[in-house]
Amino acid sequence: MGNQTVTADKKTHLQHHFVDADQQFESSKLGMWIFLVTEVLMFGGLFVAYIIYRSWHPDLFQLAAKELNTILGATNTVVLIASSLTIALAIRNVQLDKIKASINYMATTIALAGVFMVIKYIEYTEKFAKGIFPGNAYYYDGIDHSMASNFFSIYYMMTGLHGIHVLMGMALISWMILKAKRGAVHSSYYTPVENTGLFWHLVDIIWIFLFPLLYLID
């Protein structure tokens, strides 16, 4: 077995310490799920902070939420859901060895993610223009509540962290495209694509929670 590792199966990228491809696949799948759990818990912390503050100052959340642009938020939600679909299709196609199609779907996903970021950019600039900055920098006086800045601090923390995850997702998917181009992924080895897909779904789901919690308060 010692020397067997050298002649490890190239096609399925079997690493020497795994007995067979299934074992390797299951392992990385489980690993990915555990990672997602940690991600959820991390955002969970922010959600807790959100809940606590909302219970302390419900009125503030009422007022401040009006400042957020629901239309843009909603569009973004749709965009992300669509992207979840395309990535799913991308995975399906790798499994069927339709690499070309898969690559196109992944590209679409990235495009959609791009749209999402652009819209977010618009939203942010619009706020900054008004002087709605996180924390101390905040100087907007359109909301008559002593702690208006707190709401937006939470808003920026949550959407900001989520935005970072979108970017990471885009990076991962681009990497997958390269892999696919190199023919490194195919029906007998598509673990990385699958995991990237999982990650992307998480990013999507988190937004689906953020949207109503931040934009649709009343």
Partner: peptide, 12 residues
């Protein structure tokens, strides 16, 4: 959050 508190003063 603590770091943000420190950098931006988000005041949580």
């Amino acid at each position: 959050l603590l770091a943000m508190e420190r950098i931006l003063g988000i005041g949580i």
